[in-house]
Structure formats: C-alpha cells, structure tokens
Computed example of a mutant assay.
Amino acid sequence: SRAEIQLHDAVLSAPQKGVVLTRAREAGAIVQSGQTVYTLALTDPVWLRAYVDEPDLGRIKPGMSVRVLVDAAPGKSFPGTVGFISPTAEFTPKTVETKQVRTALVYRLRVQAEDPENVMRQGMPVTIVVDGADAP
C-alpha cells in the first residue's frame, strides 16, 4: 500500500493540455512538494494578451466577440471572446521620456480564442479585431 502511494506521488500530471516550455529539474532529481519541475503553456483554452488604447477602452466590454488574425494563416480569422480587462493602465513604451508619451496609456486584455486547427503558438503575434465596437 505504501509503495503504491509513493508511486502515485511520483507521477507528474498537468491539470490541462499544454506544451512544455522549460524543464526546471532533471529526471531523477529529488524535489519538494510545490517546487517547479516544468513550465507549461496551456493550449486549451488558448489565452491571448492584447492591449487597448485608453481612448478606445470605453468601447470594449468583457464577453465581446473578437476575431483573431494570425500571420501564419493568411486570410483566416479565429473567433474569440474578451475575458478580462485590466483595471490598471500601463504606459507604452515602458521608458517614458516625454510628456506626449506619458499620455499613451494602454489597458491589458485577456482574450480566449478558439484554435481548432492548432495554428497559434506561444509568443506568436496576433491581431485582434473587435466585433460590435463602435467605429472610432
């Protein structure tokens, strides 16, 4: 019974499907509970990070439909939904040097996208087109 428990405790499993990004420990290493062994990029669902300019923020709402355009699949778009809008503004670019740049605030969005063709990859640039948003 004890050996079965130890064997069960030695098996690593991910809570969701994903791709291994980094391996922090080698096979056979002794690790403590809670220590990082692998870093995963979850592949289902696909989450994208996008930014919206401050003047356009009022037109974006959680639950809005979006289309995701990927350079790797020209002419195709993938459906998505705005999930989270950060309550905190960020400056872009990160180095603020002039008064004009300080007014360039953006808010981070998290978009859940459908990728049935498995086209999108970690770190790949995408373009988000917001459906239903009023034209500027």
Score class of each variant (00 low, 15 high):
I5M: 09
A104F: 14
R59I: 02
S13H: 13
T36V: 04
P55R: 11
D131P: 00
G28V: 11
D9N: 12
Q35I: 02
M64P: 00
W47V: 01
Q6S: 07
L42Y: 10
Q122D: 04
V106A: 13
Q112W: 04
Q112A: 01
Q35R: 12
A72R: 13
K17P: 01
A14R: 11
A27L: 13
T43E: 05
F78E: 02
L48F: 07
V129A: 08
V126W: 09
M124E: 03
R110I: 02
S65G: 02
A104K: 14
D56A: 05
G123M: 04
R108M: 08
G63Q: 05
M124V: 04
G28Q: 13
W47A: 01
I128S: 07
V37P: 00
T22K: 15
T103H: 15
T36K: 14
F84R: 06
T98P: 11
V52S: 12
V119I: 09
Q6P: 01
A50M: 05
Y38T: 04
G75D: 09
A135H: 08
D9P: 00
K76T: 01
G123V: 00
Q6N: 11
N118H: 15
G123H: 07
V11E: 11
P15T: 02
Q35A: 10
S65N: 12
N118K: 15
D9S: 05
K94Y: 14
S33P: 01
T81R: 08
V96K: 12
E90D: 07
E54V: 01
G34D: 04
V68K: 01
P87V: 03
R25A: 12
V31C: 07
E54C: 09
E114D: 03
L109Y: 05
H8C: 05
H8Q: 06
G63R: 04
D53N: 15
G18V: 00
L12F: 13
V119Y: 05
S86H: 14
P125A: 03
E97C: 08
T127S: 08
P136Q: 10
K61D: 09
A72K: 08
L69E: 13
S13E: 13
V20G: 04
P116K: 05
R25D: 08
W47F: 06
T22E: 15
S65E: 09
E26R: 14
R67V: 04
L7N: 08
K61E: 13
Q100R: 14
K76P: 00
G28S: 12
R102P: 02
K76D: 08
V66C: 04
T88V: 14
G28D: 10
A10N: 14
V101W: 14
G75K: 09
P93H: 12
V119R: 07
V19N: 06
L12C: 03
A135M: 06
T98L: 13
V119F: 05
L109D: 04
R102K: 15
I128C: 08
I60H: 06
S86E: 11
E4K: 12
V70Y: 03
S77Q: 11
K99Y: 15
V20S: 08
R2V: 02
F78V: 00
P125K: 07
W47K: 03
P79Y: 07
P87K: 09
M124P: 01
A10W: 10
R102V: 06
